[in-house]
Design a binder for these strands. Structure first.
Length: 299
DNA sequence: CGCCAGGCTAGCG
DNA sequence: CGCTAGCATGGC
């Protein structure tokens, strides 16, 4: 086993691990004490989280927790570069905040979750988990991904315990719609199965990375179960389009309440307007702070 | 019990 | 094109 740590003081703007992995951006991390998404009162903030990364034939488990000014990790491999990628540790949060307009609700949200970073999920996992997100609560989206892992993913042994990798495109493509329904996916089951078939056959969601933003969003909507909103989530939480602002029910309410002039009546035009309102380049960062702030019961 | 959740697809005009 | 009915499931 390898282990190591990263000093949070070396990260520009610090990090809040709990907010980063429990804010409904990524559904690929599990919390080992079983308290994920719960509004606990006596929490020390130092729970272990784990995920897996592809690593040739054998996926690798990454365990990480935040304690005493460090991100401490354990893995079968060197987790350092993986954590820097998955948790966007190179983002300069101070610079991002300085580039964000000073609206009151954004500032309150940014203050409340100082150190929260966007995630950089792997593209296929992001695509499937956000297809599952349609008309679904955050906690259940996460439990669906756990069910997919536990039932269909490759077993990985680490420190004497069994973990499960996220299923591959081939594994999901070979799973029947009824099996996926049995895992609680509901009407999303055929979307997941058919999209996995497309990816297994060679259509690469990550190809959107090289496109202009709106072209990339259009490209992703070719996958079954992916409309503009899910496409924006994949662009923002996986493919480095920090300007993407997913227009979900929460942000629609926010627009009506705080930025009514940005409501242009349709997705593409409202998207452009709110993206401009939130400062352009890092608009998705502002959106994610506000989403987590409002969804957590503030205001 | 009814309502709703980080929406999408198919089918209509 | 734009618009909308229908959609599975579980928690409150």
């Amino acid at each position: 086993m390898e282990q190591g740590s990263i000093e949070t003081a070396t990260l520009a703007g610090g990090i809040d691990l709990q907010s980063t992995v429990e804010s409904g951006q990524s559904y690929l991390w599990d919390r080992e004490d079983g308290q994920m998404y719960e509004q606990e009162s006596a929490y020390g903030g130092d729970a272990w989280y784990w995920t897996t990364v592809r690593n040739g034939e054998d996926p690798a488990v990454l365990r990480v927790r935040q304690r005493d000014g460090r991100l401490e990790w354990e893995s079968s491999i060197d987790a350092d570069p993986h954590l820097r990628r998955l948790l966007r540790l190179d983002d300069d949060l101070d610079a991002i905040r300085n580039a964000t307009p000073g609206h009151a609700v954004i500032e309150r949200a940014s203050d409340e979750y100082r150190g929260m970073r966007l995630v950089r999920d792997p593209p296929f996992e992001a695509l499937i988990s956000f297809i599952c997100s349609a008309q679904m609560r955050v906690g259940r989206i996460h439990s669906m991904q756990q069910a997919l892992r536990t039932t269909l993913g490759q077993q990985v042994r680490f420190n004497g315990k069994i973990y499960h990798a996220y299923p591959t495109p081939e594994q999901l493509a070979a799973t029947s719609e009824s099996t996926l329904r049995d895992l609680g996916l509901g009407y999303r089951a055929p979307y997941v199965q058919r999209t996995a078939e497309m990816v297994a056959a060679g259509t690469d969601p990550a190809a959107a990375r090289d496109m202009a933003y709106e072209e990339a969003r259009e490209y992703l909507t070719q996958f079954v179960g992916v409309g503009d909103k899910v496409a924006d989530c994949v662009l923002l939480f996986s493919l480095d389009f920090l300007e993407a602002v997913p227009l979900d029910t929460w942000i629609q309410t926010t627009i009506e309440e705080y930025f009514p002039s940005a409501d242009r009546g349709n997705y593409a035009d409202t998207s452009r307007a709110i993206r401009e309102t939130l400062g352009g380049e890092y608009a998705g960062y502002a959106q994610t702070y506000v989403f987590h702030y409002l969804r957590s019961g503030n205001e």
